[in-house]
Structure formats: structure tokens, C-alpha cells
């Protein structure tokens, strides 16, 4: 066993872990942070995405011992006011139906927050590329992309719920094939 000291969602922990323990299992099983889920066994799906020292990583592909001395933020730590006020990305996923079964959502939101830190005004293509490490098998991504763009607008200080505030090329592009079919 190896002792690790980590801060997770603002609280400090000191625990003994086996070197083979994956970060996601430490979070879920030792800390009870079950908001972070395991979706695959292959590092593909991104459902387990958390922030390690501010950067999105797949917590199934990081060892818990590697988080020693680091700051981890999970989906349970992104709302403010002790969870009372949802993060703008969480709120946008809720308002725009960015989820169906919800299993991919924690990872989608953590990846999206990471993307928006780097690119506060992403195009539709940039959102799709930014979350390419996260798989959703329900929604077809359409509303996820809209949610990320709405949250981006809100975080830039533009009126929430008004994607027209920025020229949302993505919306137009997405509407075209639908119009053609009807």
C-alpha cells in the first residue's frame, strides 16, 4: 500500500491505496464519489472524466497513486454554493436536453468545462472535436453541442438561452438537412 494525499472537490484526504488502484475506483469506492462513473473497460468512453490539477483526464487511465499531491475535481464539485447553484454547463445540459439516460453526462460536462477554459467561444465543429473523447449512445450529440454552446455564451457574459447572441453557425448547419427532409 502507498499513502496518498489528495484534495478532491475541495476536501483533503489522506489514504492508503494499492498502486494498481485506478483513480476512478479510488474516487468511487474509497471516497464514495459515485457521480463519476465507469462506462467502458477500454479508455474510450470518457464517462469517468475528472479534472486533475485543472485538466480533464480519463480517471480509469490514471493510477490513484499518480494523483498524490494533486487537486481532483469531479462532477460533484463543479456546482457552487455547496451544490445549490449548478455550473452553467450543468444547467445548459438540463435546459437543452443534453442527456437522455444520463450515463455519459458527468464525463461530458467535465470535458466540456475543460474545453471552454481553453476555447470560450467554440464553433460547433470545435465542440464536437473537443468532446470527441466522450461517447453518448442516446442523444446523437445534437443537444449536447447546443448545450455546450449555450453555456459558453452564458460564461462569456452573453444573455443565457440566446444562442443568437453569437452567430451559431452550428444551428444553421444542423437545421439544413432536417429542412430538406420535411
Amino acid at each position: 500500500m502507498t499513502q496518498i494525499n489528495v484534495r478532491v472537490d475541495g476536501a483533503s484526504y489522506s489514504d492508503d491505496v494499492e498502486p494498481r488502484t485506478l483513480l476512478v475506483h479510488y474516487l468511487r469506492e474509497q471516497l464514495g464519489k459515485v457521480g463519476t462513473v465507469v462506462g467502458c473497460d477500454t479508455s474510450n468512453c470518457g464517462a469517468c472524466t475528472v479534472h486533475l490539477d485543472g485538466q480533464a483526464v480519463k480517471s480509469c487511465t490514471v493510477l490513484a497513486v499518480q494523483a498524490d499531491g494533486s487537486e481532483v475535481t469531479t462532477i460533484e464539485g463543479v456546482a457552487s454554493g455547496g451544490g445549490a447553484t449548478l455550473h452553467p454547463v450543468q444547467r445548459a445540459f438540463h435546459e437543452l436536453h443534453g442527456l437522455q439516460c444520463g450515463f455519459c453526462t458527468p464525463g461530458m460536462i467535465m470535458a466540456s468545462i475543460d474545453l471552454l477554459k481553453e476555447n470560450p467561444d467554440p464553433t460547433e465543429t470545435e465542440v464536437r472535436e473537443g468532446i470527441e473523447g466522450n461517447l453518448c449512445r442516446c442523444t446523437g450529440y445534437q443537444n449536447i453541442v447546443r448545450a455546450v454552446q449555450q453555456a459558453a455564451a452564458e460564461m462569456r457574459g452573453e444573455a443565457p438561452g440566446d444562442p443568437g447572441a453569437s452567430p451559431a453557425a452550428g444551428d444553421t448547419a444542423a437545421a439544413e438537412p432536417m429542412a430538406a427532409q420535411s
Binding site: 486533475l52 480519463k58 466522450n134
Partner: peptide
């Protein structure tokens, strides 16, 4: 290469 999370590590 891969995706943004993988490129971080």
C-alpha cells in the same frame, strides 16, 4: 492523436 483527455496525459 486520440482525444483531448488522452492528449493531456
Amino acid at each position: 492523436v486520440a482525444d483531448r483527455q488522452v492528449r493531456r496525459r
